[in-house]
Design a protein around this nucleic acid. Structure first.
Length: 553
RNA sequence: UGGGGCGUGGCCAAGCGGUAAGGCACCGGAUUUUGAUUCCGGCAUUCCCAGGUUCGAUCCCUGGCGCCCCAACCA
């Protein structure tokens, strides 16, 4: 299901697939999303799996979810479950096609033996350091390992012993016998299997040798009948190796296609760094609302449709591109504008007394839940002689383009009356602490004749307003590209969150965790799913509203 | 300096020899009890540069220039 009415935008991958289908080179489209379960998914992964699942949907094919769990020391079940949840959250469905690279360990082992028998693989007994030295450099050919010409029999025996656990980690390794002088480093006898006496999250202690990515990925694709193995650009140099294994093994050949990974400004995307942010407590966890993880965005209040829209909007190419964070935020606004109920909340209160309104009177005003969607109904908004407005909406000496409240000025109370500021009360320090106003009681639901009041401000009734916790989030990093700083941690935005309170209309007190409201004229706020208590919600600011006035200033 | 990629407006991105889609941003203007939303209009004589082929080139060729990736028993 596409999030937009428009046909999916054309891109080079779609073009390749369409052509293959037309000329009969392929008959169906099978893609796959192959995360390693060693961390939480982030927005960059969303780009990848939206592409893979999207392509499968568009061409009536199938997209598999396959966990690339070939490195047991980094992988955990916790991540497997989290990843499944995130993919589902965005609305994608892998059906019965849930796989693990570890499902193929037996087959992979057999294939390794097959290559040894064919003289295409050998057991190397050099140390890591020796291998590094003999591999050569980017401009210098490598040299053959002294173990390169072991007999097939010897290799078979050694590999079997590796499997049986006769050797400690790091003592031997199975390598493909390709070309130590290849200009492509990946072809200089790449590692196929390493010894790792480690417990695997799924296969337990069955194995003490594990296949490398390069020896597992293409074969996994092949076994599953994946027709298009779509990955990021850094694997371009691996493609010849991917194809080499497929060819030598004589198995079904998927096509690997590479696209540019997502770069988002004011964000870091590397798992290592995200993990460090969590471990070093720069954020509260993987699901901190400032994190670029899907769990973080969910908690922040980003709707899944917005993330889908974002992925579609940014397109797919091969050039290293940088997307501005504001593009994502704009998608969030676009989505939330349609779906969020409107409420009033004051973040920075300034007391207002309506002098011509009875002190003991409380009126229940009707306010629409959504101005463009009357079918969403209305709610009651209490009004009394004592209110709070936002300090930003009053200026003692307003500039010409300011059309909010000022001494002697008139303004519309959103969903209420027009009021006029008669008197400004200050404390001993000269700070404004209260405004005395008078209301034009004939302006409820209608405009006065003979004068136009342009300004509209939000407010809450003092005695009925409820105080709630709010967290005002901003971008996690202050630098556009945190990786350009000497240390990306130096680029952290010290003001990425401000913990504060807000006075809100009473109906908000029982809001369900996870729901998002628009605090009119302020922004979108989501009831935090972790820290809210029944009757005691805590609000996360998801994103502010567009503010052309702030830009004017 | 070996190999693999990429260069289209501020940011993405179509186009694949016939005379520059679209989105976002931006700038006008209209509507509006959110300076929000919505709506209407504007926004590349030019596709990294220089030559060449062609009636015609962003698309083909040659040569430059710039940027990204690769030397884990990570993925």
């Amino acid at each position: 299901m596409s999030t937009s009415q428009l046909p999916p935008p054309s891109n080079f991958i779609r073009t390749i697939i369409s052509e293959d289908l037309e000329n009969g080179r392929r008959e169906q489209v099978i893609t796959r999303f192959p995360p390693e379960p060693n961390g939480y998914l982030h927005i960059g992964h969303a780009k990848s799996f939206s592409l893979n699942f999207g392509l499968a949907e568009d061409f009536s094919g199938q997209c598999h979810l396959r966990f690339d769990d070939t490195n047991p020391v980094k992988e955990e079940d916790e991540y497997v479950e989290a990843i499944k949840e995130d993919v589902s959250w965005l609305g994608f469905d892998w059906g019965d096609h849930l796989y693990f690279a570890s499902d193929y360990f037996d087959q992979l082992y057999l294939w390794a033996v097959q290559l040894i028998k064919a003289g295409k693989a050998y057991v190397d007994s050099q140390t890591v350091e020796q291998m590094r030295e003999t591999r050569g450099t980017l401009t210098q050919a490598g040299v053959d390992s002294p173990f390169r010409n072991r007999t097939i029999k010897e290799n078979l025996e050694l590999f079997e012993k590796m499997k049986n656990g006769d050797f400690p980690d790091g003592t031997h390794i199975l390598r493909a016998k390709i070309d130590m002088s290849s200009p492509n480093m990946n072809l200089r006898d790449p590692a196929m299997y390493r010894i790792l006496h480690a417990h695997h999250h799924r296969t337990g202690d069955k194995w003490c040798i594990y296949p490398m990515y390069d020896f597992a990925h293409g074969q996994g694709d092949s076994i599953e009948g994946v027709t298009y193995s779509i990955c990021t650009l850094e694997f371009e140099d691996h493609r010849p190796l991917y194809e080499w294994f497929i060819k030598e093994l004589g198995i079904f050949a998927p096509q690997q296609i590479e696209f540019a990974r997502l770069n988002l400004s004011y964000t870091v995307m590397s798992k290592r760094k995200l993990l460090q942010l969590v471990n070093d407590k720069h954020v509260s966890g993987w699901d901190d609302p400032r994190m670029p993880t899907l769990v973080g965005m969910r908690r922040r209040g980003y709707p899944p449709e917005a993330i889908r829209m974002f992925c579609e909007r940014i397109g797919v190419g091969k050039g290293a591109s940088w997307i501005d964070l504001s593009v994502l935020e704009e998608c969030v606004r676009e989505q939330l504008n349609k779906s969020s109920l409107r409420r009033q909340a004051v973040l920075n209160p300034l007391k207002v007394t309506i002098s011509n309104y009875p002190a003991d009177k409380v009126e229940e005003l009707d306010a629409p839940n959504h101005p463009q969607q009357p079918e969403l109904g209305t709610r009651k908004l209490p009004f009394s002689h004592e209110l709070y407005i936002d300090r930003d909406d009053f200026m003692e000496e307003p500039p010409k383009k300011f059309f909010r409240l000022g001494p002697g000025r008139e303004v519309r109370l959103r969903n209420g009356y027009i009021i006029k500021c008669d008197e400004v009360i200050k404390d001993e320090n000269g700070e404004v602490i209260e405004l005395k106003c008078s209301a034009d009681l004939d302006t409820l639901g209608k405009n006065p004749v003979g004068r136009k009041v342009k300004g509209i401000i939000h407010w809450v009734s003092a005695s009925q307003a409820k105080k709630v916790g709010v967290r005002l989030y901003d971008r996690l990093f202050k630098e556009e590209n945190p990786d350009k700083a000497a240390n990306y941690l130096d680029a952290l935005n010290p003001e990425s969150v401000k913990v504060s309170t807000a006075l809100v209309e009473p109906s908000l007190l029982n809001a369900e965790p996870g729901t998002t409201f628009q605090f009119e004229r302020v922004g979108y706020f989501t009831v935090d799913s972790k820290d809210s208590q029944p009757g005691k919600p805590v609000f996360n600011r998801t994103v502010t509203l567009r503010d052309t006035w702030a830009k004017l200033k």
